[in-house]
Design a protein around this nucleic acid. Structure first.
Lengths: 240, 240
DNA sequence: GCCGTTTGACACATTTCGATACAATTTTCC
DNA sequence: GGAAAATTGTATCGAAATGTGTCAAACGGC
């Protein structure tokens, strides 16, 4: 929770929207307001929203519809507000991919706790940073220069990476020591869904290994997990 | 969700515990049962649990206490069951770090949806292990290098391990001098449930013995427990 | 010691992976 | 705008890893 998280509250009733925003602000969160789905979409475009609190029942575009849209196009977590304890709504909401829901009338303290819980979970997964400044990640005998899209060895030799190689390496470096399936890798690198017989990731891994491994036949950095995927098996340290 | 996820249901009331387990099993999940916190801790040690459904109110150790313990020592997601819609309980649970909660009496379909939602989140991108850095475990005449997935003998010779061999050895080294059944081994290594006539573990043990035992015919490290399973019969020491 | 069960060892089938070649696509350069 | 080059996806083959089946040996109860 580096800079205070940015919450977007979407509800058509001002009597709910505004006191809630104030309560959140008093507790260390930034709150943006939207009275309908259109306003919400605008706010999402113009601000770096970390989480959306979304009323299901709204005039115009439905909350569920907006939630579905969010889930399809972004990773931003969503907490649904539902008017009543209606099982159907709740189940549908969860199945659509909402991260949580709260029934009205709600206890603000509980909503805050849920927001924090969801943020904690969402943050443990490092979000792609729009941080435009160049970053430098050290791993094994290399330093990845994200600005120049190349790796520099301890001896100062720079090896350029293609875009696919660069993306794949970045994905690995942000999630070291974790087994990533081909599905996940494909999703994280190109946003694509895996085809049935998709070997493109294998190929990219192979190409990347040829560039970063000392002995590509016995890889030390990118390990194969038989039947599971690949894992980056070294420490990664950001350079100031 | 390759191997069906493994859910641990912890509740002191059999009338809740067992029907729930059956319902989960009917819907493609494996369910383990525990009637109290002690049983739960045992199950967590001996099975690869993916998620815990935990009653708050239990005789003996409290559900909240167990939840806190889980959050401190593992990443296993927790869904709390609370007897009534008591705001305090819910907030405390979420603040402790539960991933969700459901109030009794609950709708099984809703609980299932929540379980799937939490699993989906937990799986979408696994969290980095906080225990970063390769670990080195010494046993018998070998040192296991978890970074390189290989064992190094006293003479400095390195023997590479396959994925399955590495996982099996790791499972043994983390539970030395304990008899592990084939079921448990299969679960802990591949998350799979044992088939009726499953000899894959026997085979893996055999292969592993050929690599680590001085005399594979008279194994000194991995002992066979007739009718019970296998046991790792040597001391294991972590190397700095 | 006899007999049913369990385990070890081996051979074999199946799945998964690495490497290479080649086609399709995008980018670069003029 | 178009050709050449680089990049990326697809197909294929062989190798490696793993699971399954079989048989003989080991084990324990009786």
């Amino acid at each position: 929770m580096d800079p205070s998280p940015h919450i977007l509250v979407v509800d058509d009733e001002r009597e709910i929207r505004e006191p809630l925003a104030k309560y959140l602000a008093r507790n260390g969160l930034r709150a943006d307001l939207a009275a309908n789905a259109a306003e919400a979409r605008a706010a999402l475009k113009n601000s770096a929203i970390d989480l959306v609190v979304l009323d299901i029942m709204m005039p115009g575009e439905d909350g569920l519809s907006l939630c579905r849209h969010l889930r399809e196009t972004t990773d931003i977590p969503v907490i649904l507000l539902t008017a009543m304890a209606d099982d159907t709504d709740r189940v549908v909401g969860l199945e659509i991919g909402a991260d949580d829901y709260v029934t009205k009338p709600f206890n603000p303290r509980e909503l805050l706790a849920r927001i924090k819980a969801v943020l904690r979970r969402a943050q443990s997964v490092p979000r792609p940073r729009d941080d435009s400044g160049g970053e430098r990640l050290m791993f094994g005998p290399w330093v990845l220069d994200t600005d120049r899209q190349e790796i520099v060895g301890v001896d100062g030799v720079a090896v350029p990476l293609s875009t696919a190689e660069f993306r794949l390496l970045t994905v690995f470096l942000r999630r070291p020591r974790i087994v990533l399936s081909r599905d996940q890798l494909l999703d994280l690198t190109s946003g694509r869904a895996a085809d049935v017989f998709d070997r493109s990731i294998d190929n990219q891994v192979s190409r990347l290994r040829r560039k970063i491994e000392e002995d590509p036949k016995n890889p030390a950095l990118i390990k194969t997990v038989w039947g599971g995927g690949y894992m980056f098996a070294a420490d990664v340290e950001p350079l100031t």
